[in-house]
Amino acid sequence: MRYAIEHPEAVAAVVGIAGRGPQRDRTWSEAYEAGKAAEPVVDIDWVPEVHAALSDSFTDWIHQSDLWRGLAACGVPMHFIAAGDDIRPPWSLAQLAALVPRGRFSTVPGVPHDFWYTHPEVWTKTVTNACTAS
């Protein structure tokens, strides 16, 4: 999404799946904290330097004074897809889809946040359909 806003000429479309929007509030964090113990365990190598760099970049981006203006003006098609059984509330994705001029929002029922890992066939179908529909 950030790259599409900063370089729209280089992006045909954006598909965002089971993520979170640029901002979240206390209710979002409370829902996440309350449900995280029930999340499937996904074994991914943890590289602290990579996580720190991504976190710092995200924090810099969401504090930009023109963040919402850039989103509202971005003409790149964006499809935000929430996992139906994600512990993360999907409202911020729905808000983003409503904000961007060519935004869409949908939900994949019956799958958790990391459904690329737990339901790879559903993930493949979801991504394929989203990319071909853009």
Rank of each mutant, 00 (worst) to 15 (best):
R2A: 10
R2N: 07
A4L: 04
E6C: 03
P8C: 05
V11E: 01
V15A: 10
V15Q: 10
G16P: 05
G16D: 14
G16K: 10
I17T: 15
R20I: 06
G21M: 05
R26T: 07
R26D: 14
T27N: 02
T27P: 01
A31G: 03
Y32V: 12
Y32N: 09
E33I: 10
G35D: 04
G35I: 02
K36N: 09
K36C: 03
A37F: 00
A37S: 14
A37G: 04
E39W: 00
P40Y: 07
P40S: 05
I44P: 05
D45H: 08
W46F: 11
E49C: 01
E49W: 01
E49F: 03
H51C: 00
H51W: 08
A52M: 01
A53F: 06
S55I: 00
S57I: 01
S57V: 08
F58Y: 11
F58Q: 11
D60F: 02
W61A: 01
Q64H: 12
Q64K: 14
L67P: 04
L67C: 09
W68L: 12
W68H: 04
R69C: 02
G70F: 03
G70P: 08
G70I: 08
L71V: 14
L71A: 12
A73R: 15
C74Q: 04
V76K: 14
P77L: 09
M78D: 02
H79L: 13
H79A: 04
F80A: 01
I81D: 03
A82G: 07
G84D: 05
D85H: 09
D86E: 09
I87H: 09
R88G: 04
W91F: 12
L93P: 11
L93D: 13
A94D: 14
Q95T: 09
L96P: 08
L99E: 05
P101Y: 12
P101H: 06
S106P: 05
T107E: 15
P109R: 11
V111M: 06
V111D: 03
V111E: 08
F115G: 05
W116R: 10
W116N: 14
Y117N: 14
T118D: 06
E121P: 03
E121I: 00
T128V: 01
C131D: 03
C131K: 10
T132V: 13
T132H: 10
